[in-house]
Design a protein around this nucleic acid. Sequence first.
DNA 1: GTCTATATCGAGATAGAC
DNA 2: GTCTATCTCGATATAGAC
Lengths: 180, 180
Amino acid sequence: MATARRGDRRGEIVRAAFDMIGERGYPNTTLAAVAERVGLTQQGLLHYFPTKEDLLVAVLRRRDELDVSGGAVAGPAGVLEALAMLVDVNASRPGIVQTFTVLAGESVTDGHPARAYFAERYARVRALLAESLGDEVTAQLVIAALDGLQIQWLLDPEGADMRPAFDRLAELVGRGRAAE
Amino acid sequence: MATARRGDRRGEIVRAAFDMIGERGYPNTTLAAVAERVGLTQQGLLHYFPTKEDLLVAVLRRRDELDVSGGAVAGPAGVLEALAMLVDVNASRPGIVQTFTVLAGESVTDGHPARAYFAERYARVRALLAESLGDEVTAQLVIAALDGLQIQWLLDPEGADMRPAFDRLAELVGRGRAAE
DNA sequence: GTCTATATCGAGATAGAC
DNA sequence: GTCTATCTCGATATAGAC
């Protein structure tokens, strides 16, 4: 069970920051604006998170909590099915997807505060998915597809529905395995 | 033939900005820093590009010029081969890939100056690729994979080589077609 | 065409009162 | 725990001289 109680200021702040990063990007998300959204002054917020980067770290942790990271993973078919469900869940929460997409894109820049986090996270998810899918290259490809589909979908929700494209990939991966 | 002559200040500026956006992201790329790199003051630069957004537009245009956008496209096999070559070319120019990745990620934020550009561009490339690959969904998927592979590769050049993963996709797409 | 000077703004952060 | 006040910095942009 994560943070969520009366007087849970930190939780409120992190949720607000999470949303706003998705809306405006990290560099354009100001502490003052986050503070205002939760009814605080900028300095009141700094009481909880001494620096902006401290807040970003908390936001990334929240991202992990929300993640439907496949706990106990089954075989290839099971994982692809679970990921298809994740695609549907994501399609219902554009804000979260947007936050993730923006941060992941920014993270490749020099010295970005979230760079190490994303590098580690991708390596971890690749390894986890590789266990179920059989090989790491396919895992890398599937993750890439998920990320890339999100970009197109965020820019054009009607014209680039994620689910059909993911299903196509799952179908191809399934056939690929069957053919071996 | 693109811009490139003696006294081609605008070209110099755009090239510098292009590189720096890849290094630091658009919001963190300052006009003064770009100006300094080409031996100008910030105000000297503003003579050529009155606003920062004007400069961004020029950078995006340059991106298109550099693009190895498949001119005359052949059948499915031909396109996948051409794209594999594009992957190799990209692997040799991380700066350009980084600029593109950063801008594409940022572009999904509200009111980003490059949002319309990317939305239009993805729609166009999807349609173009769909002509060769047969259907739009597969085109969407292939583009997504290319984008997503770039993110992982930029964060971990050794651990997430793009080419094997793309080859795997090309193989799967090839088999998928053969099976119909 | 490029400069100096400066206006204006908004950011993150500190000090200290309540 | 939250506020007021303030510092410092760095950004875009303007005005006008050379």
